[in-house]
Design a binder for these strands. Structure first.
Lengths: 192, 192
DNA sequence: TAATTTAGTATCGACTCGATACTAATAAAG
DNA sequence: CTTTATTAGTATCGAGTCGATACTAAATTA
């Protein structure tokens, strides 16, 4: 019956709602919904093993049928491109279109948050990030959800030289920039 | 271009999505949506100055038209009761019905979160709560949103004796339990 | 007394979302 | 090899959200 964890939950819920409301405000005039912005943010960060409808559905926590509808809309609006995978011809690959990238760049969804956190001490934020991250990992492990972290925090990521890395799961080479992208197969190095 | 605040934003977004997905799971078989659960949680905590459709709309960050629809559904399901205010006959008062209270009690929406935070040090959680709270206050002040805090953290709440408090805004007496309810007119005592 | 504001409801259209049913490509089993 | 799963994705349906708009009725202001 600890009170602080409940307080944290309510803060996260309330902040989440405010973020969604802010998304609605920013994106509403484009005729989009919050989930569309979330999808675009994900596609902007997903690596080449994770830029599929299935992966996006897992990230958003919705069914593949639902995500298929949202992708239809984003495609109609010209914000994403869909193309078939060459190896496995069942899978569809997704990427932001030029227009999608420009829109995402233009609306800067994090700017308000940046202002809001400006006067909070770096140490307090670090502590907050740490507590939230740990909670997230626990919640994800409870329901078997993926962590969707970036490669350089993943147990499968091995540094080969100054500039090249290697993914032990997919057995493929990773460039430096690629190690900062989000992967659906991510397994966190340590749960600290 | 600080990285930690962005990390915190992404964590809050992701946790918010997971909480919504969990809500869907818990409440889906009742034929309800996440927003219905949020409304019920709010109504369970709202004080007698804040238990109205307007107040709920502001809390949820949606329009009064939208909230009116959700209330219609909750009413049809017998989870809330609506009654007219005696003084101002335009306003509708809301409260959970017996059945609504029982349902809310039964599904314990915070239980998974309690488990997830069990092994995090109290100090780290305190820091996290502090950072999140400050961010929330900043975001709320930016867009003029209400803080929706409990009376005993509000500048208008004055302690009269051991057991009775007084609200300087509404100029009314508050019982002890009432000072732990959420108010739409809440103004935080300090932004620390 | 008239004009304005406020609280709430009703209706419409676009979209989400889960459920179900489907297609097509791949993988597994015999 | 062929048959049988399994997997990735799409299509369709119904209930509901959500903003926008238009409305009613009560309260407030002029």
């Amino acid at each position: 019956m600890l009170k602080n964890p409940v307080a944290m939950l309510q803060l996260v819920e309330r902040l989440g709602n405010l973020i969604r409301a802010e998304m609605r405000r920013v994106i509403g005039q484009e005729g989009l919904q919050p989930v569309h912005l979330e999808a675009m943010i994900f596609l902007n960060q997903a690596n080449r093993f994770s830029n599929t409808p299935q992966s996006l559905a897992e990230f958003l926590g919705v069914t593949k049928g639902t995500v298929s509808q949202s992708l239809l809309l984003l495609d109609r609006r010209g914000l994403i491109e869909r193309y078939q995978d060459e190896v496995d011809r069942r899978v569809v690959r997704l990427r932001l279109s030029q227009q999608g990238e420009e829109m995402l760049e233009a609306m800067q969804p994090a700017s308000l948050w940046q202002s809001a956190t400006r006067n909070i001490s770096a140490n307090r934020i670090r502590n907050g990030v740490s507590a939230l991250r740990e909670t997230l990992y626990m919640l994800q492990s409870y329901n078997g959800a993926r962590t969707f972290g970036v490669c350089n925090t993943c147990i499968y990521c091995q540094r080969k030289s100054q500039r090249t890395h290697h993914c032990a799961l997919f057995a493929e080479r990773l460039s430096g920039p690629e190690t900062r992208l989000v992967c659906r197969e991510h397994v966190p190095k340590s749960v600290s």
